[in-house]
Nucleic acid binder design. Structure first.
Lengths: 258, 258
DNA sequence: ATAAACTTTTTTGTCTACAATTCGTTGACT
DNA sequence: AGTCAACGAATTGTAGACAAAAAAGTTTAT
């Protein structure tokens, strides 16, 4: 792993004449944004845009104008461009030549494919984690489940979606395969968009206590049960969406008149 | 990825007055410069660098100096930068801040992870394709197998590796799940690098006629056999590598002195 | 009044110049 | 002689300027 994990950030505090004020902020990177428009490095901007998409403050289809974003974040357009390119590689943003960047709108077909992929991968990860989960990891998962239940109790749908995604992603990362975790990250991000787009009834996403039952299976070292629960859970989530009969929206126009 | 294929569709249904006039202007931008070195657009440069890596003309660990590449391709550094960013997202190139871009050197750990991922995904794809393969698809696969056998007969190891990767990727694309195909693309590219790095005996990669037996299973619509063959095949390939006991090279330094 | 042609404005794409960083080398000091 | 610091060459990182394209708005002719 040597070189790979240093890819991010680096480039500590650099001071440009007019930016002396936020030079200190840069170092922290993580979640720091004291001023309205302070975070000047790519990683921070990336995270903030991604968070806005996941939390549905930027709706699917929304156009992302480079200069506007640059102004908001106090960054150059070049940097925004870099971030948008990364988001588009992760399929969270769609880049259309000469037109710009848009928050992705996964089609129903893509939605099916995402769930098919997850059904292949996640039960296996659950089985694996069940055999290796440490108490600390279990605690972390329980914490996430708790936060999710709390958000659900408060009818905070966006937080439920976000936390649910985080739960699945955390499992993937704990399972000890960085490559698969990376792919699961893409899939959970896409799933967030899919749920936003296609989940009509309120708060049905990732229903009831399936997450906590999964954690119990981990605690009991019961790999098979964990895998089975995960599979069922994914089916459940997929079936709770309006995909089966769903409207295709825009694309239909072309299919209808042919 | 998504960018290319959406150039047309999107809002194509709506008619804009100027469309006809602009359409021909757009075309000009494409092939402005047709000199010898003229890739000139990002896609072409991307493909050429990727091909060079897959065919081992650029060895793992090789540094990719931006200005040098810009000169070679008659492009600007900015464009090279764009391409390198894309390659790094695909994990074929490692980007180290302030140091530059290097052809990726997957670790043994990553190699194991890649094969674990493939074992989850590819048997399922094989099973699926067996039930849906058209004659044309089978013909295409046989063609690839033939080309590979020919390359093997000529002891052209690089072509064998490349064609073998293409075979697996073609299966993934035929299986009809674009998301999984995309992920398999990454995994096969990484596998190419892994084989280059860790395959000591000559031409052992993707051994014998396993590919052609797989195609036969497809032809017989025998999903279970196809899945089983694929799984066996992957194990076979992995075990033919020097991974099990392999030297860890550079990374060891950090682990050894800790 | 409508629709095409022209103009203006907004937005994206690309290039070039400059600032910052790294790494190798030289030179001074102990 | 050996160590360390400072310089210098090579390379990457970033911003800002300019050109090309799309979108919006305006005029003109039928």
């Amino acid at each position: 792993m040597g070189a790979r994990q240093m890819v991010q950030n680096g480039s500590g505090a650099r001071e440009r004449p007019q930016d002396v004020r936020d030079a200190k902020v840069v170092r922290l990177g993580q979640e720091r944004r004291s001023k309205a428009a302070a975070g000047a490095d790519a990683e921070a901007i990336y995270r903030r845009i991604l968070a806005a998409i996941i939390e549905h403050r930027l709706a699917p289809g929304r156009k992302l104008v480079e200069e506007r974003l640059a102004a908001v974040f106090g960054a150059s357009r070049a940097m925004i461009r870099q971030v948008l390119a990364r988001l588009s590689h992760e399929m969270v943003v769609t880049l259309v030549p000469n037109r710009g960047a848009f928050v992705a709108e996964p089609t129903v077909e893509e939605a099916r494919e995402v769930f098919e992929a997850r059904r292949l991968i996640e039960p296996a990860l659950a089985r694996k984690l069940a055999l290796s989960a440490t108490p600390a990891q279990l605690a972390r998962l329980r914490e996430l489940v708790l936060a999710e239940e709390k958000a659900r109790a408060q009818r905070d749908r966006q937080q439920v979606i976000r936390l649910s995604g985080e739960f699945h992603l955390e499992i993937a990362e704990m399972a000890g395969n960085a490559i698969l975790a990376r792919q699961m990250r893409e899939l959970t991000l896409l799933t967030c968009l899919i749920i936003i787009l296609y989940d009509s009834p309120v708060g049905r996403a990732c229903p009831e206590d399936e997450h906590s039952r999964l954690v119990e299976a981990f605690a009991k070292r019961d790999g098979e049960t964990a895998a089975a629960l995960m599979l069922h859970h994914l089916d459940h989530v997929e079936q709770s969406l309006d995909i089966s009969l769903a409207a295709q929206e825009d694309d239909d126009l072309e299919r209808i008149f042919s």
